[in-house]
Design a protein around this nucleic acid. Structure first.
Length: 650
DNA sequence: TCCAGCACTC
């Protein structure tokens, strides 16, 4: 019997598929020639050799064999070869060379090559080649389209993607292919045309959980959590990935509590947890900044066998979480126990040190990293530059910034300039900071001008502030913080007319001030929330009284209210009253009332801590003999015995 | 022979 030929088995298969079972009679098959059999045998031998390859050198040897056996025009074998090369992520020059030597490429080898480009890049080459293929009159096979849409998605090339999509419609049939449909949704979403993706989804004949999840993720990334949630509820068979997409969506949209609630529901539903799910939940815990949740999720991770020792992704997320929860020491413990460390782990740790004002540790780790195989990336530099900025290490920062391009091959981005402006401006080199902005080769973004404006606030420079603010008003017309900052700068300079001018502008634009808010964890792990001048908390009366008592004690110890922190034109007495309503002071007093003596108090604040609250905390940490940790939207302050980890420089 | 969720950024 003829048993080993692929042609034979293919013929049988296609006859079966078309319902011609009756033709499956031995007499209907022309026996293969001996030569053909020999060739088929060789081909299948080579293909199995290809699949057994474990490194690039072996692949080259098989290639040499293909040529030696005279199969250098055999599309069947070469297609497999190109696929394996792609799997090994061999740069596309090599597959291209192989392809270019084939005189009459068939649709499959075209597809393999195009797919290679769509996975490894240069992505734009995929569409170029596809057009060549069409010009030569080769009819595309359906699965070429998922490769093309992937490539267009990677380059955000909406026009090409749209064009190819229209062609699939005119060729007919392929749009109803589930895989093609899913990649098409993904392509439109990546190009920023969510509505087009939605339309494809709505028009698809059948959808699987992947189609739903693509769309859910897209809405979540757009901040449309309500739409995402609606889709999620309608999804009949939710799998781990779909659940994770929702959990992560809430975390990414700064809704950590909902993320945790959904994660609990997910576990109740008996869905498994993997590292991706965990990372989303860990990020939610990091946002809450509470020790209780940090401990809990660490246990969950260890329990699932996904602890930091063995899992680098979970480890890096945990480093970030512990840093943001105020436990930089614990973050470092995690870092040290990790068997594998990559650029994420190093960067997270460096950023963690920077946030806590441990500039020396950050720099040390950076130089340690440089000695390893792991190359620093743009985020790593954000970390070290921030560290310099928080510690006022101007010279070191200048050197690092200067070495980015030359030594590490990283072109400074606007974010890096923002760090430098922050460093220079904060340390009093306002003019130099402004000069740096003026000489930037790339367009400065809001972060750059924002850093300059912030520095003007510290050093009281309304003139440069006006310039920075005017750019900010254009770049971020709805950014209320910039207006508030400018008005504060005018207020500090006593320019009350300008203050009211800015206030009017705010009112005219219909903007509302972001309410200041602080959170503090009570001893039972429950988180309490305080807004500025908030009297809605059940214990408000006690808090107010305790605050007044504390104020008297602090004044005796030398604390003086910093009245210039108040941006309203009020009497000194009124200013002092107003300062006592700041949310972090309420949170502090609540913490003092509800936690046991000796334990530390952790406060998280949504805005930057003001100067008066900073000196209040300093004094309070000395008088009450408590450690106070405040996380504002920029960094951490550890107050102990009347001193702060930031060295009063922030 | 392809398709979904992913850690570090003032």
């Amino acid at each position: 019997m003829v048993a080993i030929s692929r042609h034979w088995s293919r013929t049988v298969l296609s006859l079966c598929n078309r319902g011609f079972h009756s033709q499956l009679q031995p007499q209907n098959f022309v026996p293969f020639s001996q030569q053909q059999l020999q060739r088929n045998f060789l081909e299948s031998q080579l293909v199995s050799l290809l699949h057994g390859c474990s490194d690039f050198n072996q692949l080259r040897q098989v290639h040499a064999n293909i040529i030696r056996m005279g199969l250098d025009q055999c599309c069947f074998v070469l297609t497999k070869f190109i696929r394996v090369l792609t799997k090994f992520m061999v740069p596309m020059d090599y597959p291209r060379l192989v392809f270019d030597q084939v005189r009459r490429p068939n649709p499959f080898i075209w597809t393999a090559l195009i797919r290679g480009y769509s996975l490894l890049g240069p992505f734009s080459e995929a569409v170029v080649l596809y057009n060549c293929m069409r010009k030569e009159g080769t009819r595309p096979v359906s699965f070429i389209f998922s490769a093309l849409f992937k490539a267009c998605g990677a380059t955000h090339d909406f026009n090409s993607g749209r064009q190819v999509h229209c062609q699939t419609i005119s060729i007919g049939g392929f749009v109803s292919d589930l895989y093609v449909g899913n990649t098409l949704i993904d392509m439109y979403v990546k190009c920023g045309f969510l509505d087009y993706g939605r339309r494809v989804f709505d028009e698809m004949m059948d959808r699987d959980v992947i189609s739903w999840t693509s769309l859910i993720t897209a809405y979540a990334k757009n901040g449309a959590m309500e739409v995402a949630g609606e889709l999620f509820d309608r999804l009949p068979d939710k799998d781990m990935v779909a659940w994770t997409a929702m959990v992560t969506g809430y975390a990414q949209n700064a809704r950590p509590r909902e993320a945790l609630r959904l994660f609990e529901r997910m576990r109740d539903a008996g869905v498994e947890t993997d590292e991706v799910t965990l990372v989303g939940v860990i990020s939610a815990c990091a946002q809450l900044g509470a020790e209780k949740y940090a401990r809990w999720i660490r246990d969950v991770a260890e329990h699932a066998g996904l602890g930091p020792t063995t899992n680098v992704v979970v480890g890096s997320a945990l480093i970030d979480m512990y840093s943001k929860c105020g436990s930089v020491d614990e973050a470092y413990q995690v870092f040290e126990m990790m068997m594998e460390k990559n650029v994420y782990s190093y960067s997270a740790m460096i950023v963690g040190f920077a946030m806590h004002g441990k500039a020396d540790a950050a720099m040390r780790l950076f130089y340690e990293m440089v000695k390893t195989e792991t190359k620093p990336n743009r985020v790593t530099f954000i970390g070290v530059l921030t560290a310099c900025s928080h510690a006022g290490l101007v010279e070191q920062g200048r050197n690092l910034f200067g070495s980015m391009q030359g030594i590490y091959g990283i072109t400074p981005s606007a974010d890096h300039y923002a760090c430098m402006v922050d460093l220079l401006g904060r340390s009093g080199h306002l003019e130099e900071a402004y000069e740096l902005v003026k000489t930037m080769e790339i367009e400065p973004h809001g972060g750059v001008w924002g850093a300059l404006l912030g520095a003007c606030r510290i050093h009281g420079n309304p003139d440069i502030a006006e310039i920075a603010a005017s750019h900010l008003f254009e770049l971020e017309p709805t950014g209320i913080g910039n207006y508030v900052l400018l008005s504060n700068i005018y207020a500090s300079a006593g320019r009350w007319d300008d203050v009211s001018r800015v206030r009017k502008l705010i009112r005219k634009k219909g903007m509302k001030k972001n309410p200041a808010c602080s959170w503090v964890e009570a001893s039972n792990g429950v988180i309490h929330e305080f807004f500025a001048a908030d009297m809605t908390h059940p214990k408000s009366k006690e808090i107010k009284q305790a605050l007044e008592e504390l104020l008297e004690r602090l004044k005796l110890a030398g604390y003086k209210p910093n009245l210039s922190s108040v941006v309203y034109d009020l009497s000194d007495n009124e200013k002092e009253q107003l300062l006592m309503t700041h949310s972090e002071k309420l949170a502090l007093v609540f913490g003092l009332l509800t936690t046991s003596a000796g334990s530390s108090i952790r406060i998280v604040k949504n805005l930057r801590i003001c100067e008066d609250c900073h000196s209040f905390m300093l004094s309070a940490s000395g008088v009450t003999r408590r450690e106070i940790v405040v996380r504002d939207n920029m960094r951490f302050h550890h107050f102990r015995d009347g001193l702060c980890s930031c060295g009063d420089f922030w």
